[in-house]
Design a protein around this nucleic acid. Sequence first.
DNA 1: CACAGGATCGTT
DNA 2: ACGATCCTGTGT
Length: 199
Amino acid sequence: MPQPGRLIPQAFYLRPVEPVARELLGCLLRHGPVTLRITEVEAYGGQPDSASHCRHGHTARNAPMWDPGGQAYVYFCYGMHHMLNVVTGPAGDGSAILIRACEPVCGLEEVRRRRGGLDGPVLLTGPGKVAQALALDLGFTRHPLYLPGGLELLEGAPPEGILRGPRVGIDFAREEDRLRPWRFACAGTKWVSQRTQLI
DNA sequence: CACAGGATCGTT
DNA sequence: ACGATCCTGTGT
């Protein structure tokens, strides 16, 4: 099994998106002084997926999702938030994993500064919050996660309990999510995005 | 070119 | 429950 702290090799990402998403739980994201542990993920693409940015085929924005796995895909959402995705699969697969929540491991003071002085689970429980804490922007799209320097993805101890299921709630009761139980996965922890529940 | 909607967040 | 804030993809 993975050795904590080692860079994950690109081969890890060149597989179907859902097992990669599952195994990403517990892994570490490092950018400079800040290290975060992934506690919640969401898989997109890899098969017909009407919720994926690839649902209408190849476009300028989603181009990184069609590349071989192992790189970041960052996009701008709702006019104010950046979202970090990990691209997976071989070239042409059009799949990626949204990092939905983390817990702090290193650099807590810097994270709190970037998050407006907040603290507790509200700090990193949401995809926009994670990107803000890691100081990411569109310039990180296509950044390789398996090379030292910059934004890195490291192996970490897998969490004890992995919960998974479709998201439910305001806009999450979609049929396709019910048919795809591994789209969404989170660790058994308090560090779970607020708009996410399990059924 | 106009429009509708969006993988969200923080406040009310 | 709502507003912020703007980019993207589609339709005309």
